[in-house]
Structures are given as C-alpha cells and as structure tokens.
Amino acid sequence: MVRRDVGLIPLLNRPFGQTGLNPGYIKGYVPGVRENGGQYTHGAIWAAMAFAALGDSRLAWELTTLINPANHAKSKEAIATYKVEPYVMAADVYAVAPHTGRGGWSWYTGSAGWMYRLILESLLGLRLEVDRLHIAPCLPEHWLGFTVHYRFRETVYHIGVTQPGPDSPEPPGLTLDGVRQDGTTIALVDDQREHRVTVSAAASSA
C-alpha cells in the first residue's frame, strides 16, 4: 500500500487500535506507529527491492524516492512535520493524524543498511558474491547511464553502464577489458591493475 498523498508506504491498513483482534506485539504500539500501521522502513525498502527484482524500474524508483529522508525536507512545512534528521534513516514514519509524516526512531542502522543495499544492489545492480560481481541495473527510463569506480581489495574496476534507448540496435551485454563476457557477471582478480568494464543495460519496464 502506498499513500502518495502524504509520501508514505505504511506496513498495513488499518492500524490495530480499539479492537478485540490480537495481531501480537505490534498492537503494543500506538496506532500508526512502527509496525502498527506506520511506515516501517525495513518493509518499505523490501517492497522497492521486490519491484526492482521484477524489473519494474518505475515503481522501484518511485518507492525509493518516497523512502528517501531528504525528500521530507523540501520545505519548512515538511521539516516541521517530519521533525527528525532528514540526512539519516528513520526506523519508521507515523501514519495517523495528528502525527502523519512524523519521523520516528532516527539514526536507525538497520534501515540504513537496507537502504544502502537497495540503492547499490537492487537499483544500480552491483552485487558481490565472494570474488564475482553481478551487474544487473534497474534504471529509470530517463537515465542514460552511470559510472562506478569499484575497488576490489587493491584493484580498481572502472565500470561504465549505459542504457540505450528502446530503438537502439546495441544489444545488452558486458565487456571486461574489451572482451565480451557471457552473462552479467565478472570474475574479480586482485592483480593491482586497473580494469575497465562496459555494460549495455537492458531497458527496465516502465
């Protein structure tokens, strides 16, 4: 569920309040706070990750934009509503009046860690498995590409990702030091030399 009117992704609707139903410990929270109907940031991030995994770049990036705390500080009114630091992740955002949009437990490292993984792994598509790097971006339609200088121990890989338009004859693919690779994975070697990787990303669904 997405509440675009207030820029929130609540965990559920409606919160448990004056009811005989017992969902467990979440009922111990005030309605609209944390897992009891608020935006529980872990869950919101996982939703964005899920859409990225499905290749739906439009929804993945839209949800990421809603989760981004900096977007709660675009005006004096927004800052007065959010009330916590807009440069760190909050565990939750309240979703019931009169506190709708107020940030909860800030400097929450768990949410920060998941946000980092959402951006780096799910959206930019860089996922490390021991000594192999998977590169499968999920980019907004209007992005032409991006560049990452990726350090593996004492070795730097310069990775350039482009997203050709839908009418481009260029096929998706990946090259390492000018040699085309099979699939979307490169083997990382710590040889203390600079390497260049080019990726032509397949267009994500809009």
Rank of each mutant, 00 (worst) to 15 (best):
I9N: 13
P10N: 12
L12C: 12
N13I: 12
N13S: 13
N13A: 12
R14A: 14
P15T: 10
F16Q: 03
Q18A: 15
Q18V: 09
Q18Y: 00
T19C: 06
G20H: 09
N22W: 07
Y25V: 07
Y25N: 04
K27Y: 09
G28M: 04
G32K: 05
N36D: 04
G37I: 02
G37F: 01
Q39D: 09
H42L: 03
G43W: 02
A44W: 07
A44G: 13
I45T: 04
W46Y: 14
A50V: 07
A52Y: 03
A53W: 00
D56Y: 06
L59R: 15
A60L: 02
E62M: 12
L63Q: 06
L66W: 06
A70Q: 13
H72L: 06
H72A: 11
A73T: 04
A73L: 02
A73K: 04
K74V: 11
E77A: 12
T81D: 09
E85H: 03
E85G: 00
D92R: 01
D92M: 02
Y94F: 07
Y94G: 00
V96P: 01
V96L: 14
A97I: 04
G101W: 02
G101S: 12
R102T: 15
R102L: 06
G103N: 09
G104S: 01
G104H: 06
W105F: 10
S106T: 12
W107T: 03
W107R: 04
T109A: 15
T109Q: 08
S111R: 02
S111Y: 05
S111G: 13
A112P: 11
A112N: 05
G113K: 08
Y116S: 03
I119Q: 05
I119R: 00
L120A: 13
E121I: 03
E121W: 04
S122T: 07
L124H: 09
G125K: 11
L126Y: 08
R127L: 07
L128C: 02
E129D: 14
E129V: 13
V130P: 00
R132W: 04
C138Y: 02
L139N: 04
P140M: 04
E141L: 11
L144P: 00
L144S: 15
G145R: 09
T147R: 14
T147H: 13
T147Y: 05
T147P: 00
H149N: 15
R151H: 11
E154C: 00
G160M: 13
Q163H: 05
P164N: 08
P166N: 08
P169R: 11
E170Q: 14
E170P: 00
E170M: 12
P172I: 11
P172Q: 11
L174F: 03
G178F: 08
V179C: 02
R180K: 15
R180L: 10
D182M: 11
D182Q: 15
G183H: 09
T185E: 15
I186T: 10
V189N: 08
D191R: 03
V199K: 02
S200E: 10
A203N: 14
A206I: 01
